[in-house]
Amino acid sequence: MLFLQTTLNGLVLGGIYSLAAVGFSLVFGVLGIVNLTHGIFVVAGAYAAMVLYAKLGMDPLLAMLPIGALLFAVGYAYQRTVIQWAISRASLVASLVVTFGVAMIGRNLLQLVFGPDTHTITPSYSFSSLTFGPLQIDVVRLVALGASLVLLVLLALILLKTHFGRAIRATAQQPLAAQLSGLNVRNLHGLTFGLGAALAGTSGAIIGIVQPFSAASEVAWTLNAFIVVVLGGIGSPAGALVGGLLLGLINAYTAQYIGPSLTQAAMFLVLVVMLMVRPNGLLGNAFGESR
C-alpha cells in the first residue's frame, strides 16, 4: 500500500514536472537553444500568481491566462533581441552563456523585489484532500495534475493540427527549407520561444499552489527541465510527459525508500547514466529525422 501511495505521489509530482519542462523541451528542439533562463520564467510565473492572488484575489488557475500572455510577450521580445543577437554575433553555444547571465540578473531582480524568503500560495482548497480507499491525494495536487495534462494535450494538438504547429515543426526540421517555402523563420523562432516561456509561466502558477518557491529555486527548475528532456526526449509534449513522470517517480521512490536528502543525487545519477546510454531520451528527438 505504501508502494502504491508513493507511486501515486510520484505520478502527480511528475505531471507538474512535465508541464514545467515542456517549454524548455520545445525551445531546445526547435531552436537548438538550451535556455537557462527557463527556471526564471517558472519562478516568475509563481510570483505573478502570488501577487494576483494577494492583490486581486484571483485564483491561481485562472491567473494562468494573463501570466501566460505576459510571459509569451516577454519570451518573444527576449528571443528576438538578446538571444538573436548572441547567436548572430557569437555562436549557438554563446546563447547558453547569455541565457545564464540573464538568469543571474532575473534571480537578483526577483530577490530585490520579493526578498530571499520562500513563499507559497494558499487558495481555499489547499488543505482538503480526497481518499480513494486507502489512498489519499491532496486536491491541489490533483488539480495541478489535471491542469498540466490539459495544457500538454492542448500543446500536442496545436503542434499536430494547426498551421502554426506545422510551421513550427517544419522550422525545426529544416530551417532553410522552411524559409524557402515562405515561412518567416525568425518570427517563428520568436513565437516558439514565447510559447515556451508562456508554458513555463503557467506551470509556475500551478507550482506556486503545490510547492514552496523562492527566487533561488529557479536553478532547480532549469535543471529539472533538462533532466526531464534527457529522460523523455527532445521537443515533444509526449517526451516531456514520459520524462516528467519518470522524474516524479524517481523522486518519490528515492525519498521513500532511500532517504529524502538523496533525491537530488538520485536524479542527477539517473541523468548522468541516461546521458551516456541514450542522450536523446527514451522517445528520441521529435525533430531529429533530418538533422
Binding site: W85, A90, V98, F100, G101, V102, M104, N108
Partner: peptide, 15 residues
C-alpha cells in the same frame, strides 16, 4: 546586486 552585475557583465561580454 552582485549577481545582477555579474550577469549583466556576462551578457555584455558575449554581445
Amino acid at each position: 546586486i552582485h549577481l545582477l552585475i555579474t550577469g549583466a557583465l556576462v551578457v555584455a561580454i558575449i554581445l
